[in-house]
C-alpha cells in the first residue's frame, strides 16, 4: 500500500533520533485524545469543541492510576493461581485443579499445543504484562535503556495482547455450561475464575491508563519546560 509522507510542522531542531519531528506540546499545541482535534495549549482543561472530551496535553495522573490498577491486578492474580479454577466430577472421582494443574493435566493427555496455549495465555502473558507495565511506568521519569521506539512497541504489544488472557475464563464458562452430563461427568467453575477475570480486567485498565505520549517526552527533551509562547497562528 502506498504511503503518504506527511509534511512536517515547525523548523528543524536538533534531536537525537528524529531530528525534524517536534511534539505538539513543544509547539504550544495539544490534541484531543478522543477525536484528535488540535487546539492551543491554553485550552487545556476545557472540553473539546468537537467531541466534548476534556483536553489534556499529558495525563498527569496517568502514572498514579497505572500503579493503582497494577497493584489491584497483582492482588487478584495471587489467589487466581492458588485457588481451583475448575471442579471436574466424573463417575469415579472428583478433582479440583488450578490453572497450572489444568495445563499439566493436558500435557499428561498428550495435548501439548493446547496446554501451551493455556500456559502462555494465563501464566506467561500475565506475568510478562506485569513486568512490561511496571517497566514502562518506571522508565518515564528516568533514563531508559530501551529506545522510545522499543518502548512504544512494547506498549502496543501489552495493549493488544492483554485481552487474550481472558481466554481461560471463557474456557471455564464454556466447559461449565457444556459438561453437565448428570452423573457421567460434570464440570463447575472454581473461585479462581473470578479472581483471574478481575486480574485481567485490572491489568487492561492499568495499561489503558498509561499515557504513551510520555514515552516520547523523556526521549527527546528530558526537562524541557513547556513553551506556551511559541505557538503559531
Amino acid at each position: 500500500m502506498p504511503l503518504v509522507r506527511l509534511d512536517r510542522a515547525g523548523e528543524t531542531q536538533g534531536m537525537s533520533d528524529h531530528p525534524d519531528i517536534r511534539s505538539a506540546r513543544d509547539c504550544g499545541l495539544l490534541a484531543c485524545t478522543r477525536c484528535g482535534a488540535v487546539w492551543s495549549m491554553q485550552d487545556e482543561g476545557a472540553k473539546c469543541d468537537r467531541c466534548s472530551h476534556v483536553l489534556q496535553s499529558r495525563d498527569t495522573k496517568s502514572l498514579q492510576r497505572v500503579w493503582a490498577w497494577w497493584v489491584a491486578a497483582l492482588m487478584a492474580y495471587i489467589p487466581a493461581n492458588l485457588e481451583p479454577m475448575l471442579r471436574t466430577r466424573t463417575l469415579v472421582a472428583e478433582t479440583e485443579s488450578t490453572i497450572v494443574e489444568g495445563a499439566f493435566e493436558l500435557i499428561h493427555h498428550g495435548d501439548i499445543p493446547v496446554a501451551l496455549i493455556i500456559l502462555i495465555a494465563s501464566v506467561g502473558i500475565p506475568v510478562a504484562k506485569f513486568g512490561a507495565i511496571a517497566y514502562l511506568a518506571l522508565s518515564v521519569n528516568r533514563q531508559a535503556r530501551l529506545s522510545a521506539h522499543r518502548r512504544q512497541h512494547l506498549y502496543e504489544l501489552v495493549e493488544y495482547i492483554g485481552r487474550w488472557s481472558m481466554i481461560d475464563v471463557f474456557v471455564v464458562a464454556i466447559l461449565s455450561a457444556l459438561v453437565q452430563l448428570n452423573v457421567a461427568a460434570q464440570i463447575s467453575p472454581g473461585p479462581a475464575a473470578l479472581t483471574f477475570a478481575l486480574s485481567v480486567i485490572f491489568t487492561m485498565l492499568s495499561a489503558q491508563s498509561f499515557d504513551s505520549r510520555m514515552i516520547w517526552d523523556s526521549d527527546t527533551a528530558p526537562d524541557a519546560p513547556v513553551t506556551k509562547e511559541t505557538h503559531r497562528e
Binding site: L6, D7, R8, A9, G10, H18, I21, R22, S23, A24, R25, D26, C27, L29, L30, A31, T33, G36, V38, A148, Q152, E156, S212, R213, I215, W216, D217
Partner: peptide
C-alpha cells in the same frame, strides 16, 4: 495540523 495520538508528533 494532525497530531499522532501515540507519540504526540505534530504534522502538517
Amino acid at each position: 495540523y494532525i497530531v499522532c495520538p501515540h507519540c504526540d508528533a505534530l504534522f502538517v
